[in-house]
């Protein structure tokens, strides 16, 4: 069989056409992806907004969270907590959260040492809670499928399925997870899933007298939280980990980690 010049040219043209095809054109979407593409609008994606300017470090959110979610009140574990940052004029940084700020910050002592008000460059409070990441590393590492993300973005722990191995506690870059002293399983903030699914606010949002905490639905463009996230300068914690955290902060400082 003779390979003519015409044959060579047509084969070469076909080859070029195939290589020019974008990979996406021959990619098959899984059923989940197709469904997600179709009905991603009009659904729910829970997100949280923290205004650090408004937080006064009273700790009423921590108190309410512990009571609401039956976290042992005296134990040094909590689903949400408030951190105090004091950055001195000489650059030294002090940070503390005694008992997760369950009883608030009532004096100017950091770990027993009084801080001279004249030395303070800046000082503020930062509430922390689960970031309900879009790519949650804690879920990836679970060996038994006991922790998972619901379609609305909240990461839950199945207490009857968790074996208490603690991988997720180590995997969370934010230190949000802890071992529940009573149930002996991994425990974490779940945005008060029993409240938000009933149309209520989370216990910490309700307890905060200053409006420092807000919860909202990112898929609703009219939601006040969505509007702030889209129009104001917000930051997230440890974005370099690629976890896509969904707790947004107003007034975040570079010293906060």
């Amino acid at each position: 069989m003779k390979f003519t010049r015409r044959d060579f040219l047509t084969t070469a043209a076909k080859g070029a056409l195939i290589t020019a095809l974008p990979a996406g054109a021959i990619k098959f979407l899984g059923p989940d992806e197709v469904r997600a593409d179709i009905d991603s609008s009009g659904k729910v994606r829970w997100a949280f907004l923290v205004d650090t300017f408004k937080c006064v470090g009273c700790g009423l959110c921590v108190k309410a969270c512990k009571n609401e979610n039956e976290t042992p009140y005296g134990a040094p574990v909590t689903r949400t907590w408030v951190e105090r940052y004091i950055i001195k004029k000489n650059g030294e940084m002090l940070a503390d959260t005694p008992l997760g700020a369950r009883d608030g910050f009532t004096d100017n002592k950091v770990r027993g040492d009084e801080v001279d008000p004249k030395d303070i460059g800046k000082a503020f409070f930062v509430p922390k809670l689960c970031n309900q990441c879009d790519s949650p590393p804690c879920v990836q590492v679970c060996p038994v499928g006991a922790t998972y993300q619901v379609g609305d973005g909240v990461v839950l722990v199945d207490r009857s399925w968790c074996i208490g191995c603690g991988y997720c506690i180590m995997a969370c870059p934010y230190g949000v997870r802890f071992f529940h002293p009573v149930h002996k399983v991994a425990e974490k903030c779940n945005f008060c899933y029993h409240r938000i699914t009933k149309g209520m606010q989370t216990a910490c949002v309700d307890a905060c007298p200053f409006g420092a905490r807000k919860i909202g639905n990112l898929k609703d463009p009219e939601d006040p939280v969505t509007k702030i996230v889209l129009t104001e300068r917000v930051g997230v914690l440890k974005s370099e980990y690629g976890t896509k955290p969904q707790v947004y902060y107003l007034g975040l400082d570079e010293n906060v980690r």
Binding site: K54, C58, F125
Partner: peptide, 15 residues
């Protein structure tokens, strides 16, 4: 009461 009303000299905070 002191959760909020113990004065702390943190100008950058609402406290």
């Amino acid at each position: 009461c002191l959760r909020c009303h113990s004065y702390l000299p943190y100008e950058q905070s609402h406290r």
